[in-house]
Structure formats: structure tokens, C-alpha cells
Amino acid sequence: MALLLDIATTAALLFIVSAGLFVIFGVLKIINFAHAAWLTIGAYTTVVATKMGLSPWLSLPLAVLVGGLLGAVTEIAIVRPLYRRSLDAILATWGLGVVIVQVITLTFGRDMQMPPALITGTVDVLGLPYSSYRLFLLVAAVIMALAFVLVLERTRLGLNAQAVIMNETLARALGINTSRVRLVTFMLGSAIAALAGVLLTPLSSVDPTMGISWLIGAFMLVMVSGTSVTALALACLCFGAAQVLVSTWISPILGSVTVAVLCAVMLRLHPKGFARG
């Protein structure tokens, strides 16, 4: 039972961490290497907010704001000029990540920070005490997934984004302002990543390089999922389960690379991943 809960909450966590990257990859077709830095920034937003005496809950909207703003600046200054050199765009976002991590290190030092958690304690699930925070993450992931679907299906932005995903040239020809769609998407993706950073704080240590350890798993999950939310959820569930099982029975260190290895092998053998069956 505890194992099942672990699997469900790990999948939720993977989903939350990958979501921001997924949004950006779907529309802009680039892997945002600054993703790790966005996660870190989100976590440090909590550190700053709680130090100023604000409720840790307030750091959620704050992180969205900070992430969105930084996302806008990044898109305009770095991603847009490299539109036609996609591998260079990846490199530039990675360089940006390095810069951000160094700035955080210079400001806050290398030490681990311990912001207060959003929710503490345990609840009983069928007679088994289980971390209530992890359960909260499960709820958060479900809400996030539903929000994705709603935005994609029910809003103009979502429709425009879908058009850009399918055929950007055609979308532009039809009068959709594709560069605005790209900008908004990048802002959204960054904001979600920063939000994920906040949600990570009680589980992961908060230090300048915290984002890196989450990065590869997120990359690979997004690669196998393509542009489908369902595929992403499914991938998180399958590979999250594999990670929990390997960590429990073999070695936690190897568990941390399970997702990446399985995804890599899967993509080689079945290049479409989860995207189409």
C-alpha cells in the first residue's frame, strides 16, 4: 500500500516538475535547459518570502510572477534571436541556467536553505500514516493536468497554441500571431516551472544546484511524451513506478537514473514514445 502511494505521489511529482518543460517543448520545439534554474528560482522565492515573514502559501503566486517575468525576458532576449538555430537556443538557455545558479550562489551562498513547509504531518490512508504533503502533491498534479486540458481545449490561447504545435507556418499564414504565442507559452512554462520549484521545497534540499538533479528525468519524460498531456501523465506513472521499485529494491542511487535510462531505451526502440500508442 505504501508502495502504491509512493508510486502515485512520485508520478505526481515527476508530472509537476516536467510540466513547465513540456509546455515549452510542445510549442517552441526546444528543450529549455534553463528549466533547472527556474525550479531553483521558485524554491528560493519561498526562501525569500518566508524570511520576509510571509506565509509559504503566498510564495506560490509570487513564484508564478517571478517565473513569468523572467520567462518573458529570456524569450525576448535569448530564445527569439535563435529561432532558426535551435541547438544554439538550447545552449544559450543552458548558459543562462549557469548564470542564474551563480547569481543565486553569490546572493544566498552555497548552503542548504530550510524554508518552512506548506503542509506538515501525516494523514491516515486506510490505517497507514502517510505524508500529507505528498498527498497534497497528488492533488496538485491532477489540478494541473486538468488545467492544461481546459486551457488547450477551451481558450483562444490554447487553440492558437495547438495550431502552432501542428503547423507553425500555416498558423502564421492564418493570421495567428505566432511570436506572441511563443512568448506567452515560454512565460507560462517558466511560471509553471517556478511553481514546481516551490512545491519541491519540502521534499528536496534547497541549494543553488538543486534543479539539476530533476532536470534529466524531466527532459526524458518530455521527449517520450511529445505534445500529449495524456502521454505525459502516462509516462510519469510508468517511469515513476519503475523509479520507486528500483529505489526500494535495488539502490536509491540507481533509482534516480531509472527514468532517464528507460526513456532513452524506449525512444530508441519505439521512437514515437508514448505519443502515439
Binding site: M223, I253, V257, V261
Partner: peptide
């Protein structure tokens, strides 16, 4: 892009194996 991401996975797996 796929080749690049694989090239990221390899050193991470190897260094984790060394840790383990």
C-alpha cells in the same frame, strides 16, 4: 535533439554508477 539528450543521460548514469 534526441542525440543531445542521450549524450546528457550517459555521463549522469555513469557518474551515478560510480557513486553506487
Amino acid at each position: 535533439l534526441y542525440a543531445s539528450v542521450i549524450s546528457l543521460v550517459v555521463p549522469i548514469v555513469l557518474s551515478q554508477a560510480i557513486f553506487a
